[in-house]
Design a binder for these strands. Structure first.
Lengths: 333, 333
DNA sequence: ACTAGGCTCTGAAACGTTTTAAGCAACGAT
DNA sequence: ATCGTTGCTTAAAACGTTTCAGAGCCTAGT
């Protein structure tokens, strides 16, 4: 309640406020004797610095904002983890905003970040829009896109080669002996999805296979079960025998739905997910999935931001490589 | 870069700084004409308030800190969601700290909360310790415990009747025809676990069943698979035929491991999880689980905090009731 | 006509830091 | 003896807000 400030510490140690501040921030400028006395006072009174005051005066917040699409998704949880570790090494704290799949919530967080005067922002956009980025750029706040590339490469970004991810998935299904591939994912507005589809289609076409695309607005388990019903109801000649799902949540729902309808996985329908979440291995049939180096991406994103905070304006695109984790929902010959 | 402050807005609108501030915070005190002029200037210059300055002067942060054990756990993700919604209704923002199961990280966040001068703290402790709570109390920062009760009821809390949760689980296993029940969870230091075990044992004893307790340090899918092996290796007379897992992550790992070892669920071993996460329904065998009203708990926790911010010192304990969601890992006769 | 009271608005103080310029003491070199 | 120099410390300004006391003006009541 009665807040202890530098003033109280200074009085208690019999020195000036400036000296206390120096002990805390540039101890080399102060004699060991007084430093000890001040430290004792700090400890004794339980002094805790007031970040607001420090930030106001110093003009820096030493904080970076990180807005993710949905932290419930383990991919983003790992991104956050990697980013926090790296940032904390560099003396920055991370303010995490969880969009919960809502652009409106995301906007609220971006606004909060601005008000907090964060030194930089890491943004994994729920749905890409140019305008807020330009706005931040005008304000001089460096931004690094996460899991999304800027269309003209004007803004630094950290992303995965989604086209390659799509190719890997298609290859797994092709090698599994499938003849009719389907990509189920979306929303189509999301860059990651478009790119995965492109890579997927590419391999499918090259192998002379039929390709279907089912666009979805979300990617959760319940939807997966519903779509499984729709697929199971298709006449055999229209039913895909190899499905690539936009993420593991969707894939696991599909998997359960298909099995529940008596279809055999991978014999009737092979399945590949995306993200390799913890539960992929624990599914009805352990799920083959495409893994992304999430924590590394988070760390790298922070590094790019530090690079800009260091003064560079030149955008950098960091690109990561996805990796197929083969389990039981695809066959290998 | 060139930061626009109240000063610039005031100059641009031809009024004093105080008036601009009034337009923003107490519009009723200012004439519609000037209000309009100021609003125009605010918009035109792209003014964004500096939270640090506001907070420093006002002495309030209008923020509450929320530290959770691990936001990757959907239970906590929902707690956060509920808390954020409720807080935002009341004009507060929530700073979320994710402990990632580490007490050290949790401490870092509590320290950050203090430095930020949050108005109050919602804490779901990774491992309960009295000391940091007393410290916060001395500083006059109201605290509400989440998913944990204070031993002497001195601090407000929001929790679930874990004993009842344990009972429900045991009843489900008993009614499933099991004769030898096991509780697998931990760490034993965690209050929730102790209570669930108590309720579990109570019902098991009353039904004259044998009870085993396997204490674990974490609760994840991998551990579940390892333990499944150990269980499968037990001689039949020592092997439990009904298992209650500390959470769904563990349960799903167990499930997969048991099925992988050729044991039939629920015929050889019945299984009950905790939390009813999204994937519970999508497992090899859809998982029977105990559901907790997470979002409601988060919202209620905020309400209790508001109650204390309103001046009350009297601790309140909010208690929620868990609910069994019956699926296929238990039998019903 | 004068005053009381109500509206608007202004100016300035205050919040707790960091940082800069300057002060002071002691010391070595001239 | 004087002059830098070095090492340590202090006083005070500044950061961008909110808030409070009061100034100015208008209206209504006497």
């Amino acid at each position: 309640m009665t807040d202890i400030g530098l003033r109280e510490v200074a009085a208690h140690a019999g020195v000036s406020i400036g000296t206390v501040s120096n002990v805390l921030n540039r101890p080399e400028r102060v004699s060991p004797a007084t430093a000890a006395r001040v430290s004792a006072a700090v400890h004794e009174l339980g002094y805790v610095p007031n970040i607001a005051a420090r930030q106001l005066r110093a003009g820096r917040s030493d904080a970076i904002g990180l807005s993710v699409i949905n932290i419930t998704n383990p991919f983003f949880a790992d991104v956050v983890f990697g980013a926090e570790e790296r940032a904390s090494d560099a003396g920055y704290s991370v303010i995490v905003g969880n969009g919960f799949d809502s652009t409106e919530r995301e906007s609220r967080y971006l606004e909060l970040f601005e008000q907090q005067r964060v030194d930089g922002i890491l943004l994994s956009p729920v749905e890409y829009r140019e305008e807020p980025l330009q706005r931040l750029r005008r304000r001089g706040v460096p931004v690094v896109l996460v899991d999304h590339r800027h269309p003209r490469g004007e803004i630094s970004s950290v992303s995965v080669d989604n086209r390659l991810g799509g190719r890997i998935a298609a290859q797994a299904l092709r090698d599994s002996g499938c003849r009719h591939l389907a990509f189920i994912g979306g929303p189509a507005a999301r860059q990651q999805m478009v790119e995965r589809l492109e890579g997927f289609q590419e391999v499918s076409d090259a192998a002379g296979l039929r390709t279907t695309h089912i666009d979805t607005t979300t990617l959760n388990t319940r939807l997966g079960r519903e779509l499984a019903d729709r697929i199971a109801d298709l006449p055999a000649e229209d039913r895909p025998d190899g499905v690539f799902a936009g993420n593991d949540h969707l894939a696991l729902g599909l998997l359960q739905g298909l099995v529940g309808r008596g279809l055999r996985v991978p014999d009737d329908i092979a399945l590949v997910g995306y993200d390799d979440i913890e539960f992929a291995a624990a599914a009805v049939v352990p799920l083959t999935s495409v893994r992304q180096p999430a924590a590394q991406m988070g760390a790298r994103a922070v590094e790019l931001l530090l690079h800009h905070l260091g003064g560079s304006d030149e955008p950098v695109e960091a690109r990561f490589v996805p990796e197929l984790v083969t389990r039981a929902t695809t066959r290998t010959h």
